[in-house]
Amino acid sequence: MSTTTLTAPKEQSCTLLAPGHTACTGCGEALAAKLVLGAAGTNIIVTDATGCLEVFTTKFPQSSWEVPFIHSLFENSAAVAAGVEVALKALGRQNEAKVIAQGGDGGTADIGLQALSGMLERGHDILYVCYDNEAYMNTGVQRSGLTPFDCMTTTSPCGELSWGNKHNKKDMPSIAAAHGIPYVATASVAFPKDIENKVKKALSITGPKYMQIHSPCPLGWRSKPQLTIQVAKLAVQTGLYPIFEIENGKVTKVRKVTTPKTPVEEYLKIQGRFAHLFKSPKGKEEIQKIQEIADRNIEKYGLA
Protein backbone atom coordinates (compact mmCIF):
# COMPACT_ATOMS: atom_id res chain seq x y z
CA MET A 1 0.00 0.00 0.00
CA SER A 2 1.03 3.56 -0.54
CA THR A 3 1.83 5.68 2.46
CA THR A 4 -0.90 8.28 2.22
CA THR A 5 -2.42 7.50 5.62
CA LEU A 6 -0.75 9.16 8.58
CA THR A 7 -1.37 9.49 12.27
CA ALA A 8 -0.34 12.40 14.45
CA PRO A 9 2.17 11.76 17.25
CA LYS A 10 -0.33 11.72 20.12
CA GLU A 11 2.06 11.99 23.05
CA GLN A 12 3.33 15.37 21.89
CA SER A 13 0.00 17.08 21.40
CA CYS A 14 -2.27 18.89 23.77
CA THR A 15 -4.85 20.08 21.24
CA LEU A 16 -6.61 18.41 18.31
CA LEU A 17 -4.36 20.37 15.96
CA ALA A 18 -1.04 19.14 17.22
CA PRO A 19 1.87 21.58 17.50
CA GLY A 20 4.94 21.20 15.37
CA HIS A 21 3.19 22.20 12.16
CA THR A 22 4.87 24.66 9.85
CA ALA A 23 2.52 27.65 9.92
CA CYS A 24 4.18 31.08 9.98
CA THR A 25 4.53 32.94 13.25
CA GLY A 26 1.32 34.76 14.05
CA CYS A 27 -0.77 32.77 11.55
CA GLY A 28 -4.42 33.56 12.11
CA GLU A 29 -5.61 30.52 10.21
CA ALA A 30 -3.73 28.09 12.47
CA LEU A 31 -5.27 29.78 15.51
CA ALA A 32 -8.74 29.63 14.01
CA ALA A 33 -8.48 25.98 13.01
CA LYS A 34 -7.25 25.05 16.49
CA LEU A 35 -10.23 26.84 18.03
CA VAL A 36 -12.69 25.17 15.65
CA LEU A 37 -11.36 21.71 16.46
CA GLY A 38 -11.23 22.42 20.18
CA ALA A 39 -14.89 23.40 20.18
CA ALA A 40 -15.95 20.53 17.93
CA GLY A 41 -14.23 17.78 19.90
CA THR A 42 -12.99 14.41 18.75
CA ASN A 43 -16.13 13.00 17.16
CA ILE A 44 -15.72 14.72 13.84
CA ILE A 45 -14.43 14.04 10.36
CA VAL A 46 -12.88 17.03 8.63
CA THR A 47 -12.17 17.81 5.01
CA ASP A 48 -9.92 20.57 3.76
CA ALA A 49 -9.29 22.34 0.49
CA THR A 50 -5.80 22.78 -0.89
CA GLY A 51 -4.17 25.79 0.72
CA CYS A 52 -1.94 26.91 3.58
CA LEU A 53 -3.80 24.95 6.26
CA GLU A 54 -3.46 21.65 4.44
CA VAL A 55 0.15 22.33 3.53
CA PHE A 56 1.41 23.38 6.96
CA THR A 57 -0.39 20.56 8.82
CA THR A 58 0.15 17.48 6.66
CA LYS A 59 3.70 17.48 5.45
CA PHE A 60 4.47 13.80 4.95
CA PRO A 61 5.32 11.82 7.02
CA GLN A 62 3.73 13.94 9.76
CA SER A 63 0.25 15.21 10.42
CA SER A 64 -1.11 17.65 12.98
CA TRP A 65 -4.63 16.31 12.74
CA GLU A 66 -5.76 14.37 15.79
CA VAL A 67 -9.12 13.87 14.10
CA PRO A 68 -9.85 11.99 10.84
CA PHE A 69 -8.84 14.34 8.03
CA ILE A 70 -9.05 14.28 4.26
CA HIS A 71 -7.65 16.72 1.75
CA SER A 72 -8.50 16.08 -1.88
CA LEU A 73 -8.29 19.12 -4.15
CA PHE A 74 -8.64 22.90 -4.17
CA GLU A 75 -12.28 23.26 -5.21
CA ASN A 76 -14.00 20.20 -3.79
CA SER A 77 -13.82 20.34 0.01
CA ALA A 78 -17.61 20.78 0.25
CA ALA A 79 -18.30 17.95 -2.22
CA VAL A 80 -15.87 15.57 -0.49
CA ALA A 81 -17.54 16.44 2.82
CA ALA A 82 -20.91 15.67 1.23
CA GLY A 83 -19.51 12.29 0.24
CA VAL A 84 -18.34 11.67 3.81
CA GLU A 85 -21.71 12.67 5.22
CA VAL A 86 -23.79 10.46 2.91
CA ALA A 87 -21.40 7.56 3.43
CA LEU A 88 -21.86 7.77 7.20
CA LYS A 89 -25.63 7.70 6.61
CA ALA A 90 -25.46 4.82 4.14
CA LEU A 91 -23.26 2.81 6.48
CA GLY A 92 -25.48 3.47 9.50
CA ARG A 93 -22.66 5.38 11.17
CA GLN A 94 -24.31 8.83 11.25
CA ASN A 95 -23.96 9.06 15.04
CA GLU A 96 -20.25 8.39 14.82
CA ALA A 97 -19.12 11.84 13.69
CA LYS A 98 -20.14 15.35 12.68
CA VAL A 99 -18.68 16.51 9.39
CA ILE A 100 -16.74 19.76 9.08
CA ALA A 101 -15.55 21.03 5.71
CA GLN A 102 -12.82 23.64 5.60
CA GLY A 103 -11.33 25.92 3.01
CA GLY A 104 -9.53 29.21 2.62
CA ASP A 105 -11.21 32.22 1.01
CA GLY A 106 -10.12 31.23 -2.50
CA GLY A 107 -11.10 27.60 -2.07
CA THR A 108 -14.46 28.73 -0.70
CA ALA A 109 -15.61 31.87 -2.48
CA ASP A 110 -13.84 31.45 -5.83
CA ILE A 111 -12.85 28.05 -7.15
CA GLY A 112 -14.91 26.08 -4.61
CA LEU A 113 -18.08 28.19 -4.74
CA GLN A 114 -19.96 25.83 -7.05
CA ALA A 115 -19.29 22.75 -4.94
CA LEU A 116 -20.14 24.72 -1.80
CA SER A 117 -23.41 25.94 -3.32
CA GLY A 118 -24.32 22.38 -4.28
CA MET A 119 -23.59 21.12 -0.79
CA LEU A 120 -25.63 23.91 0.85
CA GLU A 121 -28.55 23.46 -1.56
CA ARG A 122 -28.73 19.70 -1.02
CA GLY A 123 -29.06 20.16 2.72
CA HIS A 124 -26.15 18.04 3.92
CA ASP A 125 -25.57 18.01 7.66
CA ILE A 126 -22.19 19.72 7.41
CA LEU A 127 -20.52 22.73 8.98
CA TYR A 128 -18.47 24.55 6.34
CA VAL A 129 -15.73 26.77 7.78
CA CYS A 130 -14.02 29.36 5.60
CA TYR A 131 -10.76 30.69 7.02
CA ASP A 132 -10.71 34.10 5.43
CA ASN A 133 -7.27 35.62 5.11
CA GLU A 134 -8.36 37.64 2.12
CA ALA A 135 -6.01 36.42 -0.62
CA TYR A 136 -4.31 33.34 -2.06
CA MET A 137 -1.61 33.19 0.59
CA ASN A 138 -0.32 29.70 -0.12
CA THR A 139 0.68 30.66 -3.66
CA GLY A 140 2.19 33.99 -2.65
CA VAL A 141 -0.53 36.53 -1.79
CA GLN A 142 -2.57 36.81 -4.99
CA ARG A 143 -5.96 38.51 -5.06
CA SER A 144 -9.08 36.45 -4.34
CA GLY A 145 -12.78 37.27 -4.42
CA LEU A 146 -12.56 38.01 -0.69
CA THR A 147 -9.66 40.46 -0.96
CA PRO A 148 -10.87 43.83 0.31
CA PHE A 149 -11.11 47.03 -1.73
CA ASP A 150 -7.84 48.87 -2.44
CA CYS A 151 -5.81 46.06 -0.91
CA MET A 152 -2.42 45.45 -2.46
CA THR A 153 -1.64 41.87 -3.43
CA THR A 154 0.89 40.42 -5.85
CA THR A 155 -1.76 40.36 -8.59
CA SER A 156 -3.49 43.57 -7.59
CA PRO A 157 -0.45 45.78 -7.07
CA CYS A 158 -0.66 49.51 -6.59
CA GLY A 159 0.85 51.57 -9.38
CA GLU A 160 0.41 54.73 -11.42
CA LEU A 161 -3.04 53.55 -12.45
CA SER A 162 -3.93 51.38 -9.49
CA TRP A 163 -4.79 51.59 -5.82
CA GLY A 164 -4.68 47.84 -5.52
CA ASN A 165 -7.73 45.60 -5.64
CA LYS A 166 -10.44 47.38 -7.65
CA HIS A 167 -13.35 45.32 -6.39
CA ASN A 168 -15.30 45.06 -3.19
CA LYS A 169 -15.05 41.94 -1.09
CA LYS A 170 -17.58 39.34 -2.23
CA ASP A 171 -20.43 39.06 0.26
CA MET A 172 -20.00 35.36 0.85
CA PRO A 173 -22.10 35.07 4.04
CA SER A 174 -25.11 36.52 2.18
CA ILE A 175 -24.53 34.10 -0.70
CA ALA A 176 -24.49 31.24 1.79
CA ALA A 177 -27.59 32.56 3.55
CA ALA A 178 -29.42 32.88 0.22
CA HIS A 179 -29.43 29.08 0.07
CA GLY A 180 -31.96 29.13 2.88
CA ILE A 181 -29.67 27.28 5.27
CA PRO A 182 -30.36 27.34 9.02
CA TYR A 183 -27.15 28.95 10.21
CA VAL A 184 -24.57 31.43 8.90
CA ALA A 185 -22.01 33.16 11.10
CA THR A 186 -18.96 35.32 10.81
CA ALA A 187 -16.27 35.35 13.48
CA SER A 188 -12.75 36.58 14.08
CA VAL A 189 -9.66 35.10 15.68
CA ALA A 190 -9.69 38.20 17.88
CA PHE A 191 -12.62 36.66 19.73
CA PRO A 192 -11.77 33.01 20.46
CA LYS A 193 -14.68 32.34 22.81
CA ASP A 194 -17.06 33.59 20.14
CA ILE A 195 -15.60 31.13 17.61
CA GLU A 196 -16.00 28.28 20.07
CA ASN A 197 -19.59 29.20 20.90
CA LYS A 198 -20.51 29.51 17.25
CA VAL A 199 -18.93 26.18 16.32
CA LYS A 200 -20.79 24.48 19.17
CA LYS A 201 -24.03 26.14 18.21
CA ALA A 202 -23.57 25.27 14.54
CA LEU A 203 -22.88 21.64 15.32
CA SER A 204 -26.04 21.44 17.42
CA ILE A 205 -28.10 22.37 14.34
CA THR A 206 -28.95 19.74 11.72
CA GLY A 207 -28.37 20.78 8.13
CA PRO A 208 -25.82 22.89 6.27
CA LYS A 209 -24.04 25.62 8.23
CA TYR A 210 -21.59 28.25 6.98
CA MET A 211 -19.03 30.01 9.12
CA GLN A 212 -16.46 32.56 7.94
CA ILE A 213 -13.59 33.38 10.27
CA HIS A 214 -11.42 36.45 9.71
CA SER A 215 -7.86 35.16 10.01
CA PRO A 216 -4.99 37.64 9.56
CA CYS A 217 -1.97 36.50 7.60
CA PRO A 218 1.08 38.49 8.76
CA LEU A 219 3.05 37.47 5.68
CA GLY A 220 0.38 38.52 3.19
CA TRP A 221 -0.96 41.48 5.12
CA ARG A 222 2.55 42.62 5.99
CA SER A 223 1.59 43.12 9.61
CA LYS A 224 3.69 42.27 12.63
CA PRO A 225 3.16 38.64 13.72
CA GLN A 226 2.69 39.74 17.33
CA LEU A 227 -0.16 42.03 16.20
CA THR A 228 -2.39 39.34 14.64
CA ILE A 229 -5.03 39.59 17.36
CA GLN A 230 -4.89 43.37 17.40
CA VAL A 231 -5.25 43.60 13.62
CA ALA A 232 -8.18 41.19 13.69
CA LYS A 233 -9.80 43.12 16.53
CA LEU A 234 -9.52 46.42 14.67
CA ALA A 235 -11.18 44.93 11.58
CA VAL A 236 -14.18 44.14 13.75
CA GLN A 237 -14.12 47.36 15.78
CA THR A 238 -14.01 49.57 12.69
CA GLY A 239 -16.92 47.71 11.09
CA LEU A 240 -14.83 46.47 8.18
CA TYR A 241 -15.39 42.87 9.23
CA PRO A 242 -18.92 42.67 10.60
CA ILE A 243 -19.51 39.86 13.07
CA PHE A 244 -23.02 38.45 13.00
CA GLU A 245 -25.20 35.37 13.01
CA ILE A 246 -27.94 34.69 10.47
CA GLU A 247 -30.42 32.08 11.60
CA ASN A 248 -32.98 30.87 9.06
CA GLY A 249 -32.43 33.99 6.98
CA LYS A 250 -32.60 36.56 9.77
CA VAL A 251 -29.72 38.40 11.43
CA THR A 252 -30.10 37.38 15.07
CA LYS A 253 -26.96 38.63 16.75
CA VAL A 254 -24.15 41.08 16.01
CA ARG A 255 -21.00 42.27 17.73
CA LYS A 256 -21.18 46.05 18.24
CA VAL A 257 -18.40 48.34 17.09
CA THR A 258 -16.73 50.74 19.49
CA THR A 259 -18.24 54.04 20.59
CA PRO A 260 -16.98 56.42 19.52
CA LYS A 261 -16.33 54.86 16.17
CA THR A 262 -12.77 53.64 15.47
CA PRO A 263 -11.67 55.17 12.14
CA VAL A 264 -10.55 52.65 9.50
CA GLU A 265 -7.08 54.28 9.40
CA GLU A 266 -6.36 52.59 12.74
CA TYR A 267 -6.83 49.21 11.05
CA LEU A 268 -5.21 50.08 7.70
CA LYS A 269 -2.06 51.78 8.95
CA ILE A 270 -0.64 48.73 10.74
CA GLN A 271 -0.71 46.63 7.57
CA GLY A 272 1.74 46.88 4.68
CA ARG A 273 -0.98 45.78 2.24
CA PHE A 274 -2.62 49.21 2.69
CA ALA A 275 0.61 51.24 3.14
CA HIS A 276 0.28 52.78 -0.36
CA LEU A 277 -2.86 54.62 0.78
CA PHE A 278 -0.80 56.66 3.25
CA LYS A 279 1.89 57.77 0.83
CA SER A 280 0.08 60.50 -1.09
CA PRO A 281 -2.65 63.04 -0.41
CA LYS A 282 -4.89 61.27 -2.96
CA GLY A 283 -4.71 58.17 -0.77
CA LYS A 284 -6.92 60.00 1.71
CA GLU A 285 -9.78 59.83 -0.77
CA GLU A 286 -9.29 56.10 -1.04
CA ILE A 287 -9.27 55.73 2.73
CA GLN A 288 -12.51 57.66 2.76
CA LYS A 289 -14.00 55.09 0.36
CA ILE A 290 -12.94 52.33 2.76
CA GLN A 291 -14.48 54.26 5.64
CA GLU A 292 -17.72 54.29 3.66
CA ILE A 293 -17.58 50.50 3.33
CA ALA A 294 -17.25 50.24 7.12
CA ASP A 295 -20.10 52.72 7.60
CA ARG A 296 -22.34 50.72 5.26
CA ASN A 297 -21.59 47.55 7.24
CA ILE A 298 -22.39 49.33 10.50
CA GLU A 299 -25.66 50.51 8.99
CA LYS A 300 -26.58 47.21 7.34
CA TYR A 301 -26.02 45.02 10.39
CA GLY A 302 -26.81 47.57 13.09
CA LEU A 303 -23.34 47.44 14.59
CA ALA A 304 -23.39 50.89 16.22
Partner: peptide, 23 residues
Protein backbone atom coordinates in the same frame (compact mmCIF):
# COMPACT_ATOMS: atom_id res chain seq x y z
CA UNK B 1 -27.63 7.20 -1.02
CA UNK B 2 -28.10 8.75 -4.47
CA UNK B 3 -26.54 12.23 -4.60
CA UNK B 4 -27.63 14.59 -7.37
CA UNK B 5 -24.68 16.92 -7.70
CA UNK B 6 -24.10 20.18 -9.55
CA UNK B 7 -21.24 18.92 -11.77
CA UNK B 8 -19.19 15.87 -12.67
CA UNK B 9 -16.34 17.34 -10.66
CA UNK B 10 -18.51 17.11 -7.58
CA UNK B 11 -19.90 13.69 -8.56
CA UNK B 12 -16.36 12.33 -8.52
CA UNK B 13 -15.57 14.28 -5.34
CA UNK B 14 -18.62 12.89 -3.54
CA UNK B 15 -17.70 9.28 -4.36
CA UNK B 16 -14.11 10.07 -3.36
CA UNK B 17 -15.27 11.27 0.07
CA UNK B 18 -17.65 8.35 0.46
CA UNK B 19 -15.09 5.78 -0.56
CA UNK B 20 -12.58 7.21 1.91
CA UNK B 21 -15.25 6.85 4.61
CA UNK B 22 -15.56 3.13 3.84
CA UNK B 23 -18.49 3.08 1.43
Amino acid sequence: EYVNVESEHSAASVVLGSSATGA
